[in-house]
Nucleic acid binder design. Structure first.
Length: 297
DNA sequence: ACCAAACTCTCAGAGCTAGG
DNA sequence: CCTAGCTCTGAGAGTTTGGT
């Protein structure tokens, strides 16, 4: 076998996650041209273009898409091998991890807490809401781990994708949209609940791209509240499908496919590099990953 | 048509390593 | 120690595409 530069795997891992040469370069602390040439070598090695132009942006080829999870796992395994196993220490003082989490990550709270309590009863978890969403808290160690639909800007921060899910429409049983085909016109004809966010969400961008104008007379703080309101009123909510299936299955709502394309929701975990080599933190990240792999469709 | 953004390519220079 | 070969880098120009 011809010898391969295994450092290319790390670059590939970043490229598959960022889908951008510029962003990969920023994350790795390299120049864009260096990453571009690394991509060249990856293309030569794999015999696939991996990332191809789509307008101003790049998109993954089918082969790259298929490689993504495997590459992530290989890089993670290599890092674990080189740094030592991610085992929770049997001795030592009790330890509390502060996890900042949006309600998008709520589905994994119960299985994660059960797993941690069973395997490492000396570890305590303190979940806080995303109200305080500054990256300084991750930097200075006030927050040990962040979970959710993250838009981390700090280049040094470690971000690992946990799972993806699709957006669905939710209405009460017996609602007009619970019968027949939901068209864009019918979708927009009903009042919707919106979510309070700092910037436009992927959903709002998709609505704008499809020129769908909906009436949003009610803004709520999170998806759980949106589902609960939709279950008991004529409001329409658009939420991640797993939240309805895993967290609020008892409400008896009707779920329908959206009549337009929305990029999938991506839930990730993020942490500061200061915790990279911390064996207990690594053990926790691995447990989070395990719980999430059971959620992904 | 013009401008901006993102990626690609070429070039020259620097640093590292192996071999003589 | 010197040299050749390789890799990486930044600079700068070119290409493609989208927005105005």
């Amino acid at each position: 076998m011809q010898s391969m530069d295994l450092n290319l795997l790390v670059t590939l891992d970043h490229l598959l996650r960022e889908v951008s040469v510029t962003e990969t370069a920023r994350r790795m602390g390299l120049s864009a041209s260096a990453v571009s040439r690394a991509l060249d070598r990856l293309r030569e090695t794999t015999g696939d273009p991996l990332l191809v132009r789509a307008g101003r942006r790049l998109v993954l080829t089918a082969r790259a898409e298929a490689m993504r999870e495997r590459v992530e796992q290989v890089v993670e395994d290599a890092q674990t091998t080189l740094r030592g196993g991610a085992e929770v220490p049997a001795e030592g003082p009790a330890r509390t991890f502060v996890i900042r989490s949006s309600d998008l990550a709520a589905a994994l709270t119960a299985p994660l807490a059960a797993k941690i309590h069973a395997d490492a009863p000396r570890i305590r978890l303190c979940f806080i809401s995303e109200g305080d969403s500054d990256e300084e808290a991750l930097r200075d160690g006030r927050i040990h781990l962040e979970l959710g639909d993250l838009e981390i800007k700090a280049p040094e921060m470690r971000v690992r994708r946990l799972f993806r899910d699709r957006w669905v429409g939710v209405v009460r049983k017996g609602h007009p949209l619970s019968k027949g085909n939901v068209t864009k016109r019918r979708f927009a004809a009903h009042a919707h609940v919106g979510l309070r966010r700092a910037g436009p969400s992927a959903l709002e961008r998709a609505l704008r791209a499809h020129r769908i104008e909906r009436d949003v007379p009610l803004i709520l703080p999170n998806h759980h509240a949106a589902i609960a309101v939709a279950a008991q009123s004529d409001f329409v909510a658009v939420v991640p499908e797993y939240l309805v299936e895993h967290v609020m299955p008892t409400l008896g709502v009707h779920i329908f496919r959206l009549p337009f394309e929305v990029p999938p929701l991506v839930v990730s975990q993020a942490w500061h590099p200061r915790f990279d080599a911390d064996p207990t933190h690594r053990w926790l990240r691995t447990r989070v990953q395990e719980v999430c792999s059971s959620l992904e469709r």
